[in-house]
Computed example of a mutant assay.
Amino acid sequence: MKYLSLVISILLIVACKHDSKNSNEKFEAIEKVDTVFVHDTTLVRDSVATLTSVFNQLSYKYNYKISFTEYYENSEAYKHFWTVEIFDKKMNLVDTIILDSYLYYFPQDMQFVTTSYITDFNTDMKIMDEYYGDVVIADVNFDNLEDLAIAYDTGASNGPFYTFYIQNNGHFERDGFLTDSVYKFPGKIDRRHKQITTYWHATASCSSENLFHYNSKTKSWKRGERILHCFD
């Protein structure tokens, strides 16, 4: 009970700061979108903590309701998962994604970091350790449909690993190759050559570029060359 009381107090303080500090930034960033539908909710109940936000600035077609939930036992978090609900602009539910997460922390500063390469929302943020946000919207398979990537785990120095969901017939399906072989969100998306590039810290003094080519006819990926850059 002491732990829950402390968590509730912290959440209330952070929520107040978040509303006063960041509300203008959110509404200024959605000038390209017709309707304004953004809110944040934090719930702590029976050893469960959930942070929920609704974003309409990530897409011209969809609104995204994003939730991160943690279950606690004896003051320790033992289960974490994402819930992403995709709505059309009239708030009709289109699809729901539930993803287990191995991230042992609530999103930064009790708010989500989201990026959209569809609307250019938050694409000017400084990239550190290949972290592009908790949820990223982009067309990663060059079919002119938006896809999404959700951070679910993190490495020691290479930033988060992402699970990729590709849009198919109006629904979002997990892509096995991108999730299990690419891992990282691509730092470069080359639409002309249908190629993506990820960046890794190979050693303390070396980094690598990893290229992946997409065949739109066979709808399949092929691993390309790996370029190593070392510094004195």
Rank of each mutant, 00 (worst) to 15 (best):
T52S: 14
F121H: 14
M125V: 04
W200K: 11
V7R: 10
T154E: 08
S47C: 12
E173W: 07
G155T: 15
F55G: 03
S101V: 00
A204P: 02
S9L: 05
T41P: 00
T52C: 13
D232R: 02
S116I: 04
M125P: 01
I196A: 03
E70I: 05
I137T: 10
N169P: 04
K26I: 15
A149L: 11
F185H: 00
G187E: 03
C16I: 15
P186C: 01
I98W: 03
S116Q: 02
L58M: 12
K17E: 11
V94D: 01
R192T: 15
I127K: 13
F27D: 12
D40Y: 08
T218R: 13
L12E: 15
D153T: 06
M125R: 14
V38T: 09
E225F: 01
I127A: 03
V36F: 04
V135E: 02
A49N: 08
S20A: 10
V14D: 01
Y104M: 03
Q167N: 14
Q167D: 05
S9M: 02
T52Q: 15
T69I: 03
K2G: 00
G187M: 02
S216A: 13
I166D: 10
F142Q: 08
S216N: 14
I98K: 11
K21L: 13
D232G: 10
N63T: 13
N22C: 01
T50D: 04
L211D: 07
